[in-house]
Amino acid sequence: MSKKEFTFGIIKPDVTVKGLDEVNKVVADINASGLEVVSVVHRFLDRGEAESFYAEHNAKPWFGDLIDYMVREPVALMLIGGANAVQNYRDLCGPTDPSDAAEGTLRAKYGTSRDENAVHSSDSVASAQRELHFFFPEFQIK
Rank of each mutant, 00 (worst) to 15 (best):
K3V: 12
K3T: 11
K3R: 05
F6E: 00
T7N: 08
T7W: 02
G9Q: 08
G9N: 05
I10N: 01
I11T: 03
P13L: 09
D14V: 05
V15Q: 06
T16P: 03
V17N: 04
K18N: 11
G19R: 10
L20R: 14
K25F: 02
K25N: 13
V27A: 12
D29I: 02
N31H: 11
A32R: 13
S33P: 05
S33Q: 02
G34I: 08
L35Y: 01
E36M: 13
E36P: 02
E36W: 06
V37K: 02
V40F: 12
H42P: 07
R43D: 15
R43V: 10
R43Q: 15
D46I: 11
D46G: 02
R47E: 15
R47Q: 14
G48R: 07
S52C: 05
S52R: 11
F53A: 10
Y54K: 01
Y54N: 00
Y54Q: 01
Y54F: 00
A55I: 08
A55E: 13
H57D: 01
H57I: 06
N58H: 12
N58A: 07
P61I: 13
W62C: 00
W62L: 03
G64P: 07
L66Y: 06
I67Y: 00
M70R: 00
E73P: 02
A76M: 10
A76V: 07
M78V: 04
M78Y: 06
M78W: 06
I80G: 03
G81I: 03
N84H: 13
A85L: 10
A85S: 10
N88I: 08
R90L: 11
L92E: 02
C93A: 15
C93Y: 02
C93F: 04
G94C: 11
G94T: 09
P95K: 07
P95N: 09
T96Y: 09
T96P: 06
P98F: 10
P98K: 08
S99N: 10
S99D: 09
D100L: 14
A101C: 06
E103N: 08
E103Y: 05
T105Q: 09
L106Y: 10
L106M: 12
A108W: 01
K109I: 09
R114K: 13
D115G: 10
D115V: 01
D115R: 11
A118C: 04
H120W: 04
S121Y: 02
S122E: 03
D123A: 13
D123S: 13
Q129A: 15
R130Y: 12
R130E: 09
R130V: 08
R130Q: 12
E131H: 10
E131L: 11
F134N: 08
F135V: 03
F135S: 04
